[in-house]
Amino acid sequence: MIEYNVTWKRSGHDEHAGHRVQDRRPHPAPPGQNGEPQAPRRGVVLGLFKTDPSCGYLVWWHGKGPASMSTVSLMFARELRRTGSVEDLSLGALTRMERGARAYNDAAALYRLAGTHRFRKRSARTTR
């Protein structure tokens, strides 16, 4: 599941940025698990790789650790399945996502978006 928000767009052609999606492609097995497929991974679309959607999307697999070159990959739209948006996440998940996206330049907009929604959820919870 790649989290993404429909309201945030990096460019005018970036319809998937911020949405939660799930990786649909078969993954090679990690070393030591020969021939067995990996489970689908959860991630967040950070935006377009270039300015054209046919070039692919940058996806941060937030379950693998903080956003960095080792946890962000290039995916094509046909390989992704939308599962929700950043607004659907819990307060704890938003906190972890904000913390993980803090130091990676391509995730700056996601950092601000997660922080905004985390603040709104925390405020709504404390005012009840």
Rank of each mutant, 00 (worst) to 15 (best):
M69T: 14
G115N: 00
Q22V: 07
T51H: 11
P31F: 09
A39T: 14
K64P: 02
T95Y: 14
K50Q: 15
P37H: 08
G35Q: 01
F49K: 10
T127W: 04
A29N: 07
R25E: 07
H16G: 07
D52W: 08
E98L: 04
V21K: 06
G35P: 01
S123E: 10
E3I: 10
P31N: 04
G63E: 05
H27K: 11
Q22I: 08
D106Q: 13
F119V: 07
E15I: 09
L46W: 06
D106M: 11
A107L: 10
W8R: 07
R102S: 11
R20S: 12
G35N: 03
L110R: 03
R25F: 11
R81S: 15
A114G: 00
D106E: 09
S70C: 14
K64N: 14
V59A: 03
R102E: 04
S85Q: 15
E36H: 04
T95A: 14
G12E: 06
R96T: 04
G12L: 12
G12P: 04
P28L: 05
T126I: 06
P26L: 11
R118L: 01
P28S: 09
Q22T: 13
S73T: 12
T127P: 05
G115L: 03
V6S: 12
R41T: 11
R96G: 15
T126P: 09
G56E: 03
M1T: 14
N105P: 12
S70A: 15
K9F: 07
R42C: 07
G12C: 06
S85V: 15
R20F: 09
S68Y: 06
P28R: 13
R118S: 01
E3M: 13
S70F: 10
S68P: 03
H16V: 09
P66Y: 10
V21I: 08
P31T: 05
R125S: 03
R96Y: 15
R20P: 03
V72K: 01
E15W: 08
R99V: 12
M69K: 15
Y104Q: 07
A67M: 04
G63Y: 10
P53W: 11
G43F: 03
S85I: 15
P30W: 05
G84A: 02
R99S: 11
G47L: 04
R99G: 15
R42I: 10
G63S: 04
